[in-house]
Amino acid sequence: MKCWARSVSGCCTTQSREHYITKGLFSGKIVKVKNAPFLGGGMKQLSKASLTRKCLCKKHNELLSIFDDEAIRFGKALEYALNLSLERRHSKQKKFSVHNKHIDREKLTRWFVKTFLGLYEFFQYPPAVVESELARLVYSRNKKVANSIQLNIEMQKNENFDIKQVVSVAPLEENGATVGMVVELYGIRLQGIFNQEDSIRNKPLKLKFHEQSKGLSCIVAIS
């Protein structure tokens, strides 16, 4: 049985397949994968069904669906904000009401960690925080995981945004260890850095969509 959550609790007897990146994030059957270490880098088009590996037992895998759902909600919120922006761009209105979308930071952070645990074996350097500790963070009932992972959105002000059916993955390395990861989804880069101590006090992350002179249109907040 291959299961990175084996140190958390006993595994069941059924092996399952885990998607490298949550399959529900993408509507089509084919996904463009960029810079993925498990594919040797470069850009490749692959079916979603092929982007799986045996790294969890069925019991532990099924407990992760709530975090996959939150990542999907994040993707849907970005789609909504972009579509709203495109609709309002050609409107004759001078001012709009601001639409708000909220994403649960704790659930999204746990999704980020579980995604890392499915990928880290392909990175050059071992993780700075050991697998068993990261696994405990994902399944913890009492610990606030967002205090141990510094999650940021790595986008520049006024950077063009476009929804893309592309996944890009890159490790963050420091002193011979992998200290985090950057995942690009829907054209947004999520960066997570792991901390040995439960000491991070995160401020809400906000993606603000402006309609040039017409002002703010939509806010996607992660808190």
Score class of each variant (00 low, 15 high):
Met1Gly: 08
Met1Tyr: 04
Met1Ser: 02
Ser7Met: 07
Ser9Ala: 14
Ser9Val: 12
Gly10Glu: 15
Gln15Ile: 05
His19Glu: 11
Thr22Asn: 06
Gly24Glu: 13
Leu25Met: 13
Ile30Cys: 08
Val33Asp: 01
Asn35Thr: 10
Leu39Pro: 09
Gly40Trp: 01
Met43Thr: 07
Leu46Ala: 00
Leu46Arg: 03
Thr52Pro: 02
Lys54Asp: 04
Cys57Thr: 02
Lys58Asn: 00
Lys58Pro: 00
Ile66Ala: 14
Leu78Asp: 04
Ala81Asn: 05
Leu82Ile: 12
Asn83Gly: 14
Arg88Thr: 04
Arg89Phe: 10
Ser91Val: 14
Lys94Gln: 10
Phe96Cys: 11
His99Pro: 11
Asn100Thr: 15
His102Trp: 08
Lys107Ile: 03
Trp111Tyr: 14
Tyr120Cys: 06
Pro126Tyr: 08
Val129Ala: 01
Glu131Met: 06
Glu133Tyr: 05
Leu134Thr: 01
Ala135Asn: 04
Ala135Glu: 09
Arg136Val: 10
Leu137Gln: 00
Arg141Lys: 15
Arg141Leu: 12
Lys143Phe: 15
Lys144Arg: 12
Val145Ala: 03
Ala146Gln: 14
Asn147Val: 12
Ile149Ala: 05
Gln150His: 11
Asn152Ile: 09
Glu154Trp: 02
Met155Cys: 01
Lys157Asn: 08
Lys157Asp: 05
Phe161Thr: 01
Ile163Thr: 08
Ile163Pro: 00
Lys164Asp: 08
Ser168Trp: 01
Val169Ser: 07
Val169Phe: 01
Pro171Glu: 11
Leu172Arg: 00
Gly176Tyr: 14
Thr178Glu: 04
Gly180Ile: 00
Glu184Arg: 04
Ile188Ser: 08
Leu190Ser: 08
Asn195Gln: 12
Gln196Ser: 07
Ser199His: 04
Arg201Gly: 01
Asn202Gln: 12
Lys203Ser: 06
Leu207Met: 13
Glu211Lys: 09
Gln212Ser: 13
Gly215Gln: 13
Ser217Lys: 01
Cys218Met: 12
Ile219Lys: 10
Ile222Glu: 00
Ser223Glu: 07
